[in-house]
């Protein structure tokens, strides 16, 4: 198999890992002001504190991996998405420091609560905008971005921004359903039902809108009936997972809502992949055109083959150590 394809899958995996992992912890931030008592906010933050920086490391891998293996794509996408990327980076700082600062002050706590909320919300929204901007296409000339500074801003990218915010909030709510108990658990479960409706609506709108962004996208789904049948399993599975999510939420399950929501994200991601492949920057640049030479790909692949499984093992181990419910007041003096 062509190494470039292997790498495309690996980068896609890193991005997916980032989206679902930081998704629930950004989502927890998005729900932060709406969790009732201050003690609930403590519990919510405690549930992600030991793992958030590991989650964000996948974002560095996504960016770094792109730089390493698809440098041309990195060099075109970053200037094209200049404003949303910078805003996202700044937002991640606001929320990242809040983890530490929040517990260092009593008087100023509201400030860091706000910083955590605004940072999480903005980061999620910018990531959604970035996705939308990539989907709608980036103007390329030679080996550089050739568009304007606000090309990313369209009704479609605002919609994908909104979709990601709602989706992350759903991940956050189901995470809290899984990781907490008592009042905050009940609040999170209530929100999760609404957010599940919201997410499905957003996914529906974006899915219908997306094939009209690029002619290739349309043909990958609707070129012919046999073509449609080869990809129809995605929406079918999505519907089944949605049903599982609602059923789990309404029958008081703790774990299944979260994993169903993860499944929804996975399927949306697969759907995106079907749209994109083999493009990395629609409509002009394919993964093969953007790929680094083989010597670069092989060098990093040797390490990745050993290190990525190792990372998955110890990351799983860290989650295992902090498994179970975070109880209110636990970990307090």
């Amino acid at each position: 198999m062509d190494l470039t394809i292997v790498w495309a899958f690996l980068i896609a995996f890193a991005v997916l890992a980032y989206v679902v992992l930081d998704g629930f912890d950004l989502g927890t931030g998005i729900l932060f002001p709406f969790l009732g008592r201050d003690e609930n906010r403590d519990t919510a933050m405690n549930s992600v504190a030991p793992i958030w920086d590991g989650n964000e490391t996948w974002l560095i891998l996504g960016g770094g991996g792109l730089f390493a293996v698809f440098p041309l794509a990195y060099a075109i996408i970053m200037p094209a998405l200049y404003a949303p990327i910078i805003a996202m980076l700044l937002a991640l700082i606001f929320r990242g420091v809040a983890f530490e600062y929040r517990f260092k002050t009593v008087r100023g706590r509201w400030l860091w609560d706000l910083s955590f909320f605004i940072g999480s919300l903005t980061a999620a929204f910018c990531q959604g905008i970035a996705l939308g901007a990539l989907v709608q296409g980036i103007e390329v000339s030679g080996r550089a971005y050739a568009g304007g500074w606000f090309d990313w801003l369209t009704p479609f990218s605002l919609m994908t921004g909104l979709a990601v915010v709602v989706g992350y909030a759903l991940l956050g709510a189901t995470w809290l359903v899984m990781k907490t108990e008592g009042e905050i658990h009940d609040i999170a479960r209530r929100y999760a039902s609404f957010l599940a409706f919201g997410t499905l609506a957003a996914v529906g709108i974006v899915s219908v809108w997306m094939p009209f962004q690029q002619p290739e996208f349309y043909s990958r789904w609707f070129a012919s009936i046999p073509q449609f049948l080869t990809v129809a399993w995605v929406p079918v599975l999505l519907a089944l997972l949605a049903a599982s999510l609602f059923q789990a939420l309404w029958t008081g399950k703790d774990y299944r809502p979260f994993f169903s929501a993860l499944g929804l994200f996975l399927l949306c991601f697969v759907g995106l992949g079907i749209n994109f492949y083999p493009d990395i920057i629609p409509p002009d640049v394919t993964i093969f055109e953007a790929a680094a030479p083989e010597s670069s790909q092989i060098f990093l692949l040797v390490g990745a083959a050993v290190l990525i499984p190792t990372i998955l093992i110890y990351t799983a181990f860290a989650y295992w150590i902090f498994r179970g419910k975070v109880r209110e007041g636990e970990g307090y003096h």
């Binding site: 933050m45 307090y332 003096h333």
Partner: peptide, 11 residues
């Protein structure tokens, strides 16, 4: 002086 942020760590 401030809460431990930890998941389920007994202080």
């Amino acid at each position: 002086h401030e809460p431990i942020r930890t998941a389920g760590l007994t202080p």
